[in-house]
Amino acid sequence: MNDKLHLVCPHCHAVNRVPAEKLGHGPNCGHCHRPLFTGHPVELNAATFAQHIGRNDIPVLVDFWAPWCGPCKMMAPYFVQAAGLLEPQVRLAKLDTQAEPGLGSEHGILSIPTLALFQGGREVARQAGAMGTRDIVAWVRSHL
C-alpha cells in the first residue's frame, strides 16, 4: 500500500495527500483546514460525484436515495451511524437521485435506496433495499 493516501475533503472537495499512518488521527484538509472525516456522509451532486469516487484512495459507499422515498428516510439515521463506525477506512456519501437523475440513470439505479461500494473509481458491490446500521457495516466489511 502506498504510504500516502489521496482523500477528498468533504467540505471543499480538494484532494489531500495524507500519510496512511495518520488516517485515524483526525487529519484536516490542507486547503480549507476542516476535518477530512466528520462521522457523517458527504452530500454529493453531479459536480462532486466523480471527484469523490475517482480521487479517494479509500473505498466510497454511496447511498442512492430520494427525499420522497419512505425506506430511504427510514435508513438515513442508520447510514449516519454507519459513517461513524466505518470512517476513516471508508468514506460514506449520499446522492439524491431526484436532484441528480442523470447520475442515478448512469449508474443503473433501478430502485432506492441502493448502496453502491466504489473502490479505485469502480463499483465493486451493490445492495438494494433499506438496512440497519449493523447490516450496512457488515455488508461493507464483507466486500473489502
Rank of each mutant, 00 (worst) to 15 (best):
D3K: 10
L7H: 11
A14R: 00
N16Q: 01
R17Q: 12
V18R: 08
V18Y: 07
A20L: 11
A20W: 05
A20F: 04
E21M: 06
E21D: 08
G26E: 04
P27L: 01
H33S: 14
P35F: 08
F37D: 12
T38N: 02
G39W: 06
P41C: 15
E43W: 11
E43F: 14
E43S: 15
N45R: 13
T48W: 11
F49P: 03
H52Y: 11
H52F: 09
R55T: 08
R55W: 07
N56Y: 09
D57G: 08
I58F: 14
L61A: 00
D63H: 03
F64V: 10
P71A: 10
C72D: 14
A76S: 15
Y78T: 12
Q81H: 03
A82K: 01
Q89H: 06
G102D: 07
L103W: 04
L103M: 09
S105C: 15
L110Y: 10
S111F: 13
P113I: 08
L117G: 12
Q119G: 08
Q119R: 11
G121F: 05
A125C: 07
R126A: 00
R126F: 01
A128C: 02
G129K: 02
R134T: 15
V137E: 02
A138E: 15
W139G: 05
V140T: 07
V140C: 03
V140D: 10
V140K: 04
R141M: 13
S142C: 03
L144W: 14
